[in-house]
């Protein structure tokens, strides 16, 4: 591991010796990493390398999968998220997630964003402000402010994805996980989401899985390279794309395999 990401003084996310099995098959092997606060960390690697499995450990999405067994420790803001006392619903409020395919609920734009705050008990009078703030932060307010009651599914793919980001922001998470958020979007929508992610890191810690290496290089501060369930290298993005220390990282990012 590169020196610069060792012993981060106040990591937002701290993973120690994480192992994960789907039945007999081990999908993550002894992963340890410290993800700094208010940064963008990109996870790259070929299909099946474990990067999506890993990101799903950070808000316990793998709990939903049968025969999935996890060992090791994941702490977020110093708290063991696999501890006995953890309320998973509360955890997922603090650690939001945006998926590959935009998945707005079949309801209005407004109700999509208001959904989370409502179930977490936000009062009616606060909702308008929360929705506007979330839509503004997700850079989609201008396009939607005059049609908040329209169905979310009438938006374009790129707009739907920003709406999903707004929906995530509305419950005020401190960490946001993105699982290939732009792989279904055109280049312009992609660059809007990329700009948005870079702006959001002021207030959030962001972890993004991406197949697009140029995207990782453009938007992230730190990059982790996964291969066959192992974290091969984790370091500053500049370092990883300029002078990786491991040959397999070099081979992957220069397109020698993968």
């Amino acid at each position: 591991m590169t020196e610069s990401v060792q012993n981060v003084s106040q990591p937002q996310i701290e993973v120690e010796n994480l192992n994960l099995w789907y039945g007999e098959k081990q999908a993550l092997k002894n992963i340890s990493m410290q993800i700094p606060k208010n940064s963008v960390t990109a996870l790259i690697g070929p299909s099946g390398c474990g990067k999506s499995t890993f990101i799903r450990c950070l808000n316990r999405m793998n709990d939903l999968i049968k025969n999935c067994r996890i060992e090791g420790k994941v702490s977020i803001e110093g708290r063991d998220i696999y501890g006995q006392d953890v309320d998973v619903v509360e955890l997922r409020k603090e650690v939001g997630m945006v998926f590959q395919k935009p998945n707005p609920f079949p309801m209005s734009i407004y109700d999509n964003v208001a959904y989370g705050p409502r179930i977490h008990g936000a009062s009616k009078k606060d909702l308008d402000g929360i929705v506007e703030q979330a839509l503004r932060s997700a850079a989609i307010w201008e396009e939607t402010s005059d049609r908040l009651k329209s169905p979310a599914l009438s938006l374009s793919g790129g707009q739907q994805q920003r709406l999903c980001i707004a929906r995530t922001l509305a419950v005020k998470p401190r960490t946001i996980l993105f699982d290939e958020p732009t792989s279904a979007l055109d280049p312009i929508s992609t660059s809007r989401i990329e700009d948005l992610i870079m702006n959001l890191k002021k207030d959030y810690t962001i972890v993004i899985v991406t197949h697009n290496m140029q995207q990782a290089a453009r938007i992230s501060d730190y990059t982790g390279f996964f291969l066959m369930g192992e974290l091969i290298e984790f370091g500053q993005t500049r370092q990883i794309f300029h002078n990786p220390q491991e040959k397999s990282t070099e081979d992957y990012i220069t397109g020698r395999f993968g």
Partner: peptide, 9 residues
């Protein structure tokens, strides 16, 4: 080609 790492160097 968007060269990276040692290729870029």
């Amino acid at each position: 080609q968007q060269p990276m790492a040692s290729d870029l160097r």
